[in-house]
Design a protein around this nucleic acid. Structure first.
Lengths: 231, 231
DNA sequence: GCGCTTCTTTGATCCATGCCAATAAAAATT
DNA sequence: AATTTTTATTGGCATGGATCAAAGAAGCGC
């Protein structure tokens, strides 16, 4: 890897929350061992069952982590500034998920060895990493709860509410991926998603156009997320 | 806490995989700051939304970690030699689950502060803890997959297969809790569990008596777990 | 811009599970 | 052993969401 790439990698890594408190030099050192990987839309990054490639950070693009099977379940959509596969660093076990780029994506892949070394060298890093994994765990549990205890409509409402930028109403934003992928992320079929979205539109809570969502009545969206019965 | 308790706590902690590579002295030190807690069957250990009490280890008994709501979902049953609430040590967020003793239980509760100190002092501990959390994460993902992608019968078969001791056939063992709790652990109602168990019994794959399960045909149980259609 | 491919919508039907209710059986309590 | 409380079984019914099928729309490469 040439020096331009190395400094690019260092820059990307330095911006991760995980390395917030790590010195610039150490991040540089990490970048030395890392590689940049460009993956086109649709490209496979890793397959379930393979050994982990190391810690993966997304510079730009979007990665879909999914559990293969019928139907496909999307565990997480990983965007710029986020990382995945941390947990696999500490287990011999192979990856439990498939990773695929669903947009043109640039990755920084940091192998396990230098990270383990950093763990010994930098005490703050250990805590930050632990915190980061704890956070991920918390999200998983929340998601699990949503999937097992709430209906499809509630999950959708909660998801939309979480995507909406804070502030002015009506809030407007884009879905991060195709509706088919979003549906899989929400543990429902695309048909169900389509129907629910149109139902909410009919009731005047939002409007949909292509991938753009406009929340017209956030209070009622939030209420729907909490499971309030509608008229 | 008197010295008898302290040494009891130290002994329990020392046997945890998490402290496998930690020196006896350090474990002793940890025990100094810990407290033993005896909780009767049915007793509440922590409620969702409360701040974490610290790392909790089970000496004997059984703890149910569950997501409250309709219906209740049991995330995990924590038995002797296991721990929970690690993740909460590194987040300000309150616990995402309820913890209740479902048998007479003895706990060792280690507050966050000495653990964080140990993290700095003992490099191996950081790795072991990370590995332990990664392991937990992996289990959660596996469970998530089972719940979202497999039917109730497959989940039950996989669960029974995982409980069965390796070796001789027919394998025989006890359910770790009442059928109602096991059902919640498997994300189904007790009615569904009852029906599935009797269905499998009728088909000759197993026999049930009280909480004792006897797997008569492990090959077919394993097949059912993989979703094979039955005649 | 044209045609191909992928995504989305909509309707009809089906079915695994949940929900309710009534026993029945077991376990705990006296 | 009798009583109460908790757990488990069984039947009947209701329903959310999956599945199948078939058009439409949008995006994409040529």
């Amino acid at each position: 890897m040439n020096s331009r790439c190395r400094s690019r990698a260092a820059q990307i890594l330095a911006n991760l929350p995980m390395f917030r408190s790590t010195s610039g030099e150490r991040v540089q050192a990490l970048a030395q061992y890392s590689r940049l990987e460009h993956v086109p839309r649709g490209g496979v990054i890793a397959r379930r069952g393979e050994p982990s490639p190391g810690l993966v950070a997304v510079a730009f693009g979007l990665v879909k982590l999914s559990l293969k099977g019928e139907p496909e379940k999307v565990l997480r959509l990983v965007g710029p500034g986020e990382t995945f596969a941390e947990a696999a660093l500490f287990l011999e076990r192979p990856l439990p998920v498939d990773a695929e780029a669903i947009a043109d994506t640039l990755l920084v892949v940091v192998p396990a060895a230098p990270l383990l070394a950093l763990l010994d060298a930098d005490r703050a890093f250990a805590r930050t990493l632990l915190a980061s994994m704890s956070q991920r765990m918390h999200e998983l549990v929340t998601d699990f709860q949503a999937t097992t205890q709430h209906g499809a409509l509630e999950r959708l409402a909660a998801y939309l509410d979480s995507l909406a930028p804070p502030g002015e109403e009506p809030a407007s934003f884009h879905l991060p991926a195709t509706k088919t992928v979003v549906a899989a992320r929400l543990a429902m079929t695309k048909e169900t998603l389509s129907r629910l979205l149109h139902q909410l539109a009919r009731e005047g809570l939002l409007s949909v156009s292509r991938r753009e969502i406009r929340l017209l009545d956030r209070a009622r969206i939030a209420a729907a997320a909490r499971g309030a019965r509608r008229a």
